[in-house]
Amino acid sequence: MIILICSILITFIGFIGTILKKNLILKMLSVGVMNTGVITFFVGLSYRSGKAAPIIDKLLKNQQDLADPIPQAVIITSIVIGFAVLTFSLVYIMLLTSRRSTMDVKRIEGETDES
């Protein structure tokens, strides 16, 4: 339960960072924090069913209190995919910054400070 609460806190911290940061690299890092929060949520879900890793030892006849393998199986593939997609967006950021020579979102979009 504590892990679930922490994961939701991490996700929303990353969310606030994604919205409020101006530098594109820092924005992507905040998205990474959000991603880790979601992974932690799924692992926390599997931890509610049991505390031991869901790997069976064939010598032990009756293991109790094993974690739920389904959330882990769902999230383990998404880590690698998240890495590949993050690299892709970094390349896109690199292209953008080499043309505009800045990483600031405001300068790229040509906005002026409204306040």
């Binding site: 879900l45 509610r48 790997i55 069976i56 030892d57 094993l66 393998p69 882990q72």
Partner: peptide
């Protein structure tokens, strides 16, 4: 969010069907 307790029979069924001791691998 409801809590599911998984009995050991479930894991035994997975091993019987796939022969994979790591049940996470068996799922994905």
């Amino acid at each position: 969010i409801p809590t599911f307790k998984i009995s050991f029979e479930e894991f035994e069924r997975i091993i019987e069907e796939t022969n994979s001791l790591n049940t996470v691998t068996a799922y994905y």
